[in-house]
C-alpha cells in the first residue's frame, strides 16, 4: 500500500477542506441515538443558509408534499433524520465544487455533474435491488470522487501533471494518479471522509469504489457505486477527468446479482431521473445574496 506517499501528500496539503461546522454538528447529533428532532432542528435553525436550502428542497416538486412545509421541525418529522443529513451533506458538498480558479471551473462543473449522476445511478441500482438504505447510496455516489476535488483545489501542480499524463496517454485518471502521486483519488477521498467523520459506509465505499470486493461488509454498496460510475461514464453524464471507462470489476456483478437484461431499464431510468433532478439540485443549492444576508 502507498500509505507513506499518501501521508506525505496530505502533510503537504495545509488546508484540507472542512465541512461547515453546522454540518459536522448535525452529523454528531444524528449519530447520537439519544438525540431528538428538537435538538436537530435547533442546530439547523441557527444556520439561515441551511434552513433556506432545506425548506426550498422539501417544498419542491421533487418531494411533492401536498401542503407547504414552513418549519424545519416539520421537515424533520416528514423526512426523517437520515434523509435530512444526506440532504444537508449534498447541498454543503456542492459548495466545494466552486473555486476561484477559472481554468478548472469547467472541469469542476463536469465533475459535479458526474458525481450527481453517480448519486442518482447508485440510488436507482439500490432501489432495483431493494437495498434497505438507498439514501446513503445517493451520498456515497455523490462523494465517491471527493479525492479529485482535493487534488484540484489543494494540489494544483500535481493535478496539472496528472491531467497532462491523462491527455498524453489517453488513460484512466486512476492510473495517472498512481504513477504521479503514488496513490489515487480513492485513497485521498477516503482520508478526507474519515477526517470529516462521515458515517459508514461512506468512507469505505469511497476507498473501494474501483475494487468493491475489498470493501468488506460494505461490498454491495461499493459494487453499486462502482457500477453507477460506469453507467454515468457510458451515458456521458459529466466527466470524471478522463475519456476512458474503467472495466467492470468482475466480482461486482456477482455481488449485485444483476442480470444483463436489467441494464436497459436501469440506464433509461438514470437518463430520465438525472435530468429531472439536475436543475433542481443546482437551484436548491444556489442561495441568493439576500438569503445569505437574511
Amino acid at each position: 500500500m502507498h500509505n507513506n506517499r499518501l501521508r506525505a501528500i496530505v502533510g503537504r496539503v495545509e488546508d484540507l477542506p472542512t465541512l461547515p461546522r453546522t454540518v459536522l454538528r448535525i452529523t454528531e447529533i444524528i449519530n447520537n441515538p439519544k438525540s431528538s428532532a428538537r435538538d436537530l432542528a435547533g442546530v439547523i435553525n441557527d444556520d439561515q443558509v441551511l434552513t433556506a436550502r432545506l425548506l426550498r428542497l422539501v417544498n419542491s416538486s421533487f418531494y411533492g408534499f401536498p401542503q407547504r412545509i414552513a418549519t424545519v421541525s416539520f421537515a424533520i418529522v416528514l423526512l426523517g433524520f437520515d434523509a435530512i443529513r444526506n440532504l444537508l451533506l449534498t447541498t454543503s458538498i456542492f459548495d466545494l465544487f466552486n473555486g476561484a480558479d477559472r481554468e478548472l471551473q469547467v472541469e469542476r462543473e463536469k465533475l459535479w455533474d458526474h458525481s450527481l449522476g453517480c448519486a442518482v445511478a447508485a440510488k436507482i441500482i439500490g432501489e432495483h435491488l431493494h437495498f434497505e438504505k438507498v439514501e446513503e447510496l445517493f451520498v456515497c455516489g455523490l462523494l465517491h470522487d471527493l479525492g479529485k476535488i482535493v487534488e484540484m483545489a489543494y494540489m494544483p501542480n500535481d493535478y496539472a501533471r496528472v491531467r497532462a499524463r491523462v491527455k498524453a496517454n489517453d488513460e484512466l485518471i486512476l492510473l495517472a494518479e498512481e504513477e504521479i502521486l503514488g496513490c489515487n483519488h480513492a485513497d485521498i477521498g477516503h482520508l478526507l471522509a474519515e477526517r470529516w467523520n462521515l458515517p459508514a459506509p461512506v468512507p469505505d465505499v469511497i476507498l473501494h469504489h474501483h475494487t468493491p470486493v475489498r470493501a468488506g461488509e460494505f461490498m454491495r454498496e461499493a459494487a453499486a457505486v462502482h457500477l453507477a460510475d460506469i453507467f454515468c461514464r457510458a451515458l456521458e453524464i459529466g466527466s470524471g477527468g478522463d475519456h476512458r471507462i474503467p472495466a467492470l470489476h468482475p466480482p461486482a456483478w456477482e455481488i449485485l446479482e444483476l442480470k444483463t437484461n436489467d441494464i436497459e431499464a436501469l440506464l433509461h431510468r438514470l437518463e430520465t431521473e438525472y435530468h429531472d433532478i439536475c436543475p433542481f439540485i443546482q437551484a436548491s443549492t444556489a442561495i441568493s445574496p439576500s438569503e445569505r444576508e437574511a
Binding site: 457510458a234 451515458l235 467492470l248 456483478w253 444483463t260 441494464i263 436497459e264 433509461h268
Partner: peptide, 12 residues
C-alpha cells in the same frame, strides 16, 4: 455486460 451497456448508452 459492457457490450450491453454500450448498446443501450449509444441509443440513449
Amino acid at each position: 455486460i459492457h457490450k450491453e451497456i454500450q448498446r443501450v448508452a449509444t441509443q440513449i
